[in-house]
């Protein structure tokens, strides 16, 4: 069986090796006990809790963001259940899972954008570089300045490309033209957009193509010099060529930035991330290094999902 991927045709000539898609379950442990225990997914669907399976490699990483027993409710409906994750520093971590599993909710909880929704309640704690995120004394504005976020739909502001990029500096009251220009160029180079727009920095950001707009948003996120980059399905609205550019970009940003990316596209997760967390209905099912997760997942549920049996 194959997982259809819109980008696959365009990606054939890419240097990054495609990970072999497991045609057969590769992990012998899973084969040893077929149906021996009740599926975790069924338990979760019934409303019971199931502990996440976290690979041992995670414990050896240096976490930039630590999520501890985090639960979230939209009104009466619980969307996240006791989520605990450590996001390693300088790595790309992907959140995968079927629609409605709470990936985006988790991401928006990290920079407290969910505060905008009136009915949201949370329990648990998150820490960014050991600073708490959910404490009454936390200055949300300050917190958000430490993170950059890129949304599913490109959302450049209705202003020039230049102003879009330097927006984080503008709100900080930066007036030094030289500093602004330098940040603008660096961020655009970082987002691999500089060569395309350097001659029209003062045209509207909305005049760019979809892929360029998304990279502009990444440049804007970088310009704020964040500790963590949060990417919420950044390629879902883009065509394969634009997608591949952004994926290349992620490879380049890796190391300098810690990236948390939500994606629907498992091949993208496999290609771009170092660690992958699989979520289902608000629970983390399995979390481990990407290579293991895609070639040799410890849980049959993960294997079913990545092979496309469900979801």
């Amino acid at each position: 069986m194959t997982v259809s991927h819109p980008a696959s045709a365009a990606l054939e000539s890419r240097p990054t090796p495609l990970l072999p898609m497991p045609q057969q379950p590769a992990n012998p442990r899973l084969l040893d006990h077929p149906g021996s225990e009740e599926s975790r997914l069924e338990k979760i669907a019934r409303g019971q809790s199931a502990p996440a399976h976290v690979h041992a490699e995670i414990a050896q990483t240096d976490p930039v963001l630590r999520i501890t027993s985090f639960s979230l409710w939209y009104g009466k409906k619980q969307a996240l259940f006791d989520v605990s994750l450590c996001i390693p520093r300088g790595k790309v971590t992907a959140l995968i899972g079927p629609s409605g599993c709470g990936k985006s909710t988790l991401l928006r909880s990290v920079n407290r954008l969910n505060d905008l929704i009136d009915t949201v309640r949370v329990r648990g704690e998150m820490q960014l570089n050991d600073d708490p995120i959910y404490r009454p004394s936390v200055d949300v504005i300050e917190l958000r300045k430490r993170m950059g976020m890129v949304f599913q739909k490109p959302n450049p502001f209705p202003m020039s490309i230049y102003e879009n990029v330097v927006y984080p500096l503008r709100i900080d009251g930066e007036r030094d033209r030289r500093a602004l220009h330098e940040v603008c160029e660096r961020s655009l180079r970082g987002a691999a957009l500089w060569d395309e727009v350097k001659d029209r920095l003062h045209e509207s950001g909305l005049a760019l193509s979809g892929g360029q707009q998304q990279r502009l948003c990444i440049a804007r996120a970088i310009a704020g010099d964040p500790e963590v980059l949060l990417l919420d399905e950044p390629c879902s609205a883009l065509d394969p060529i634009a997608t591949s550019k952004i994926e290349d970009l992620l490879q380049e940003l890796k190391g300098n930035y810690s990236v948390l990316i939500v994606t629907h596209n498992m091949q993208q997760a496999a290609r771009t991330s170092d660690f992958t967390a699989f979520m289902y209905l608000g629970h983390v099912i399995e979390y481990g290094p990407t290579g293991t997760m895609f070639t040799n997942p410890h849980l049959r549920e993960t294997n079913d999902y990545i092979t496309g049996r469900f979801g």
Binding site: L113, R144, F151, P158, M159, Y167, P168, I171, G224
Partner: peptide
């Protein structure tokens, strides 16, 4: 004004007033 602009601005660390003045009102 689309919500994603508001969210985009707030996510960069702008206050609501800065968002209103710089993004929402011009739009």
């Amino acid at each position: 004004v689309p919500e994603h602009l508001r969210a985009g601005s707030l996510a960069t660390g702008a206050t609501r007033w800065q968002t209103a003045i710089r993004i929402i009102i011009p739009t």
